Simulated scan of single mutants.
Amino acid sequence: MGFFDFLLWMLWIYLVIVCIWIFIWIFIDIFRDHTLNGWAKALWIILLVVLPFLGAIIYLIARGGSMAKRQAQDAQAAAQANADYIRSVAGTSASSPATEIERAQGLLASGAITQEEFDALKAKALAG
């Protein structure tokens, strides 16, 4: 086996991996798409099983744009969920002293804390 044969085998292996990846991505997209009903999903799956390459090309031409939109929406939703989680675990420790004093003032006005407790919270916020 020469060097050229090795490169040719590497090319074929690469193409097989790419084809498998495309089929997996299309199957994932079919089941992730909420605009398709069950019959449409079944027809796409049957087309991909019976005529895999032709079905994949037709799917990418017909629904490729919506694939990208769904992926972008999922990425945006994941980023928003991540940001919400970070905000929830960050708590109020990263807030400014003015916000802490205002929150303590609200507690004092509602009668939840005494003047001494308010003064202690105010001193803690200013030292902070």
Results as ranks from 00 to 15, higher is better:
Met1Thr: 00
Gly2Ala: 00
Phe3Ala: 00
Phe6Thr: 00
Phe6Tyr: 00
Met10Thr: 01
Leu11Phe: 03
Leu15Ser: 02
Cys19Phe: 13
Trp21Phe: 11
Ile22Ala: 12
Trp25Pro: 00
Trp25Gly: 12
Ile26Glu: 05
Ile28Glu: 11
Ile30Asn: 07
Ile30Ala: 11
Phe31Lys: 04
Arg32His: 12
His34Pro: 06
Thr35Gln: 11
Asn37His: 09
Asn37Cys: 08
Gly38Ser: 12
Ala42Ile: 03
Leu43Ala: 07
Ile45Lys: 02
Ile46Met: 07
Leu47Val: 03
Leu48Arg: 10
Val49Lys: 05
Leu51Asn: 08
Leu51Val: 10
Pro52Val: 09
Pro52Ser: 13
Gly55Ser: 09
Ala56Trp: 09
Ile61Met: 07
Ile61Lys: 12
Ile61Tyr: 11
Ile61Cys: 07
Ala62Met: 12
Arg63Lys: 15
Arg63His: 15
Arg63Val: 05
Arg63Ser: 13
Arg63Cys: 12
Gly64Cys: 02
Ser66Glu: 08
Ser66Lys: 08
Met67Tyr: 09
Ala68His: 06
Lys69Tyr: 05
Lys69Gln: 10
Lys69Glu: 10
Lys69Pro: 00
Gln73Ser: 05
Asp74Gln: 10
Asp74Lys: 03
Ala78Ser: 10
Ala78His: 02
Ala78Trp: 01
Ala79Asp: 07
Ala79Leu: 10
Ala79Ile: 02
Gln80Phe: 04
Ala81Asn: 11
Ala81His: 09
Ala81Glu: 11
Asn82Cys: 06
Arg87Gly: 06
Val89Met: 15
Val89Ala: 14
Ala90Gln: 15
Gly91Asn: 12
Ser93Leu: 14
Ser93Arg: 15
Ala94Phe: 06
Ser96Lys: 13
Pro97Gly: 11
Pro97Asn: 09
Glu100Gln: 14
Arg103Ile: 12
Arg103Val: 14
Ala104His: 03
Gln105Asn: 14
Gly106Arg: 15
Leu108Met: 09
Leu108Trp: 11
Ser110Phe: 06
Ser110His: 10
Ser110Arg: 13
Thr114Asp: 12
Glu116Val: 12
Leu121Tyr: 06
Lys124Leu: 10
Leu126Pro: 01
Leu126Asp: 07
Gly128His: 02
